[in-house]
Design a binder for these strands. Structure first.
Lengths: 202, 202
DNA sequence: GCTTATCTAGCACAGTTGTGTTAGCAGCAA
DNA sequence: TTGCTGCTAACACAACTGTGCTAGATAAGC
């Protein structure tokens, strides 16, 4: 029986989206099996047909967030000024609109829990290594284009940019509003200006 | 009846320390009234004599963390090379040993919850403004000593340093071990070298 | 001694949690 | 029809949650 009324994968995605809505609205601690089922308009029993345990559900939801962000970053046009390219990639991670803000809130909630929950260590490690790769690529992009300030260590700069972006995200989440979005962009902009100044000032 | 066997304030501090131990060991979601009381060796009823509600207890615990960190920063010797002074101040915030790691874990757990919990908004805002002040002071310290790289905006640099340190803390928490401590210190060091280079390379 | 305030302990309440189990529904194959 | 499978629903269980309430213990003032 191959054809189905609703594909199992889309059902799982719907449930993950229900998780996101709850995490964004009330926090991770409200993402109980019952609440998620109600949010998705399903019964508890149905939910458990797709996800046997709660951590399976939550893990799936987080993984999906990562995939969506990665997809948007891959979609960035990589031609032209590499400083602008890197800037656009980072913008896809910042909580500048409702969608991205939701993704960041989910990320933060899971991150905070992953510090003490050994179950989440594997997933957390995976996300961390993907992000490290992403920032390493960005720095190499600047270096290959000859835009990176000379004398900087690429490995250190990747880690520094990664930490800065995570900090900026955190602050933008904690200080909601248009002003903090401008601050976030200004901070990232200032950093990029420092590590990859315009050719005239290099 | 002024004299007491155990001062009420020290009792409250003991309870706050019990909260920290639980948050560090099992996460904020395990810091229930019962668990905290058991950890402190008190009954539920006794705990409720010192803290009527749970959020009162948790708020007190977080505030105490902030006070201890501030105290250590105030204790830093501010004479001599201002780059080293700023470096020492930041070191007091990083999770480089058990004590500081615990403080950072408590900070992160509360931070993550504060994003969605309106009750915590006030406390969160207060902490944020104190930290903003702290980093603003550090940048001014460098500027007054003539160590800050010329052409940098002090306000932007304060925010950038603040974000970087928060990101570094986050990464150090998520990647436990001696290696990540070295990475954290190297990242902060590289940043300070960039915004306040040694006189010879300025 | 007695009184009073401070502190401690314990139980009760109604609510929520994750998970297990059992039953009923559709649609397809024989 | 009968049987099977993917899916949905509903209930039960034991454990846990925050908070309210009551009673006993302890220590200080008179």
């Amino acid at each position: 029986m191959v054809p189905k009324l609703v594909d199992a994968q889309t059902r799982r995605t719907e449930l993950a989206e229900a998780v996101w809505r709850i995490v964004m609205r009330d926090g991770l601690e409200q993402a109980s099996v019952r609440n998620v089922a109600r949010e998705a308009g399903l019964s508890m029993g149905s939910l458990r047909h797709y996800f046997t345990t709660q951590s399976e559900l939550l893990g799936f939801a987080l993984r999906l967030v990562g995939e969506r962000i990665e997809e948007r970053i891959r979609a960035v046009d990589t031609t032209g000024d590499q400083r602008a390219v890197v800037r656009s990639m980072i913008d896809e991670m910042l909580p500048l609109d409702r969608t991205r803000r939701g993704e960041c809130e989910v990320w933060l909630a899971f991150t905070a829990r992953a510090v003490v929950e050994p179950t989440m260590a594997g997933l957390r490690k995976e996300i961390d290594s993907r992000l490290t790769d992403a920032f390493t690529t960005m720095i190499r992009r600047l270096a290959d284009a000859g835009a990176l300030r000379p004398g900087l260590d690429q490995k250190v700069e990747a880690e520094r940019l990664y930490a800065l972006v995570d900090g900026v995200i955190l602050h933008a989440l904690l200080r909601p509003g248009r002003t903090s979005n401008a601050t976030a962009e200004a901070t990232v902009g200032a950093h990029l200006d420092q590590i990859a100044p315009a050719a005239s000032e290099r």
